[in-house]
Amino acid sequence: MVRVCPNCSNVNVNELEKLIPGNLEVECIGECGQHEGKFFGYINDELIIKDTEQEFFESVKSKD
């Protein structure tokens, strides 16, 4: 399961949903303002922080 914030995770939620249909929760994850300029979210309850959206998507694919 992947959880991202629609406001601060900096990821394209629509593209992420295409990557992992039915395995995405879009909600506040309690990390607002802590990782400015980074791309992040929880993958299987582990906070993952990356420098680019592509790196975050690669992490999602490798752990899902």
Rank of each mutant, 00 (worst) to 15 (best):
C32T: 01
G33T: 05
I48Y: 08
E53F: 01
L47F: 05
C8N: 08
V26D: 05
G41K: 01
G30C: 03
V2E: 02
V11I: 11
N23A: 12
E55Y: 02
K61Q: 14
I48W: 09
I29A: 05
Q34G: 13
D45H: 10
F39C: 05
N44K: 14
D45E: 14
Q34Y: 12
S62Y: 02
G41I: 04
G33F: 08
F40D: 02
E46W: 09
K38Q: 11
N44I: 04
E27S: 15
F39W: 09
K63Y: 02
K18Q: 15
S59G: 11
E15P: 04
E27V: 13
S59Q: 13
Q54H: 13
C5I: 02
I20W: 07
L19D: 11
Q54Y: 14
K38S: 11
K50E: 15
E58H: 10
V4P: 07
T52S: 11
Q54F: 13
G30A: 01
F40H: 13
R3P: 02
R3E: 15
D64T: 14
N10S: 12
T52K: 00
F56M: 06
N10T: 01
E27Y: 10
C32L: 06
N23C: 10
E53H: 00
E15W: 09
S9A: 12
H35D: 00
Q54E: 15
F39R: 05
K18R: 15
C5L: 00
G33S: 03
G41P: 02
N7D: 15
L24H: 03
L16R: 03
I29Q: 04
K38N: 09
